[in-house]
Amino acid sequence: MSGRNERELADLLRAAIAGDARSYALFLDRVAGLVRAYARSKISHGGVDPEDVVQEVLLAIHLKRHTWLPEAPVLPWVYAIARFKLIDAFRRRGRRVEVELDDIAETVPQPEVETVSARDIGRALEGLAPGQRSVVAAISVEGRSVEETARTLDMTESAVRVALHRGLAAIARRFGRE
């Protein structure tokens, strides 16, 4: 069933690591769907926002994509990261959970804590240094290219790339603390 999924995702990620942004966006979009289903199946209600987990997992995949070996299967790698981040998210909210690696469909027992405010990524953007924030916002929210952003903000393209990368790393770190 997942054999085709696996092959296609591996091809996309290989192309992405070689520098193909379009394949990478496709890969991340499909992985987001898988992780969303996984997170929803694990989070019964309240406490942790599944979409937060999706974003954390995508950032971790991005920043740690070199930990995937091109000859190894992609899905176990993706789910291992998702599981790690999900447990981390529960732990930060003071709950103990066991998430079985081999049983992806299994659900977590009903959480007892009721609500924790869902943090939105807008807050994560606000936490960035001004230079990084304008670059990340231009490329993500406004959908500009690196070249356009460089022109608009009067920066060199490589400065934009550096700010973008550091900005994403800073958002990931911030997620991990909240």
Binding site: G19, R22, D29, L58, D120, I139, G167, L168
Partner: peptide, 22 residues
């Protein structure tokens, strides 16, 4: 910034190749 925005930002960040673990 929703998940699609985030994906756009990450896709724009493919130019920098991380050091392989090996």
């Amino acid at each position: 910034m929703d998940t699609q925005d985030l994906i756009r930002a990450m896709a724009a960040d493919t130019g920098r190749r991380p050091l392989p673990l090996r």
